[in-house]
């Protein structure tokens, strides 16, 4: 009996184990369910039928504003941010071969945070439109610093992560310093940014973030085979004809390309990058090509669910999604850890 689904075409071939296929379908369904529920729930309960009607009918119904202007762009932002951070974490964990690696730990997020908090406490007068620009620049500078400082006849995963921790600590120090000396008003804004929130996202934000993902996601998938080989170790990968050094630079760049824009628009949402890949690994096989879509969808679902909880559970308070990402992700992850005790 075949245990996998095999596709052989002229453009290539791949096989998917049935168990992984089942898991992928399940994850997709969960994600779609979260999306649908998110559009229905909120300050006003909108029946699923009415949500559908808003999308389909020509004339704008009474719920059109809430669904199309307030809920949908926010939902899409949550999904994109979650997916991008999750995949960024997956790429880093594969490259560094350390389960603790994630954009938050290696310094990409903290670079963005330091820049964002600098902006909020010193340059907020320029207008909030500059915030994402500062954040992306901060992430890029941090990543570049990490790579340059870790370079010594090439980079090794261990050196990369140690330098990453160092840079991350320095950036974190700058952030703390700025918050500690700034006024209550600024420190609260900064704190919310550091928690991560997709509050107030509009179509403008969606249009700004989507292109980044349209480039970075397919690019990641294209590299799947090489990432698989690289995970086997430097020697094996080199033996398979892969330039390990070049691949590492590309992967680091890719993880920045994924994480930086997401963080820039939603703040330093933590934990998704760390946990989504682990959850995915426990549900589907270790092959990167399958792990990636699973990770992306889990990350998206996590952030969407977190935002749904944040804006509905304590109404009328609207709590940043970042609070609930780990509040729902961690228990689920602990359950997975508990179930597989061997």
């Amino acid at each position: 009996m075949a245990k996998q689904w095999v596709v052989r075409q002229r453009w290539g071939s791949f096989s998917v184990p049935y168990q992984a296929l089942l898991a992928l379908i399940l994850i997709t369904m969960v994600m779609l369910l979260v999306m649908w529920v998110s559009l229905c729930l909120g300050d006003t309960l909108i029946m699923p039928r009415d949500v559908l009607a808003t999308f389909l009918s020509e004339s704008s119904s009474e719920f059109a504003f809430v669904v199309e202007v307030l809920r949908l762009p926010r939902l899409l932002m949550a999904a994109m941010v979650g997916a991008a951070l999750a995949v960024s974490g997956l790429v880093l964990q594969s490259m560094i071969r350390n389960p603790l690696a994630s954009p938050d730990i290696i310094g990409i997020t903290s670079g963005a945070s330091a820049a964002a908090v600098t902006f909020l406490s010193l340059f907020a007068g320029l207008g909030m439109g500059w915030l994402p620009v500062f954040a992306i620049a901060g992430a890029l500078v941090a990543a570049l610093a990490i790579y340059v400082l870790a370079w010594r006849n090439g980079v090794t995963p261990m050196r990369l992560i140690l330098v990453g921790i160092g840079v991350s600590a320095a950036m974190g120090a700058v952030t703390t310093l700025l918050i500690a000396v700034s006024s209550t008003a600024t420190s609260i804004t900064a704190y919310i940014w550091l928690t991560g929130s997709v509050y107030g996202s509009d179509w403008h934000d969606v249009r700004a973030l989507a292109p980044w993902l349209l480039v970075s996601m397919p690019l990641t998938l294209c590299l799947a085979r090489r990432i698989n080989a690289q995970e086997l170790g430097d020697q094996l990968a080199t033996g398979l004809g892969i330039s390990v050094q070049r691949l590492r630079l590309v992967l680091l760049g890719l993880s920045v390309l994924l994480a930086a824009p997401a963080v820039a628009y939603a703040g330093a949402v933590g934990f998704v990058g760390l946990i989504a890949p682990h959850i995915a690994r426990r549900l589907v096989t270790r092959s990167f090509g399958l792990l990636m879509p699973a990770t992306a969808m889990i990350g998206a679902s996590l952030v969407m669910l977190a935002d749904l909880i944040g804006r509905t559970l304590f109404q009328p308070l609207d709590i940043p999604a970042g609070v609930f990402v780990s509040a729902i992700g961690a228990p689920f992850f602990i359950f997975l850890l508990y179930r597989q005790r061997f």
Partner: peptide
């Protein structure tokens, strides 16, 4: 008056309602 959430993140849907 109705409370529409936190000063930092007021609830947009409640305001619209």
């Amino acid at each position: 008056a109705e409370v529409v959430g936190l000063e930092t993140q007021p609830n947009l849907e409640a305001i619209a309602r």
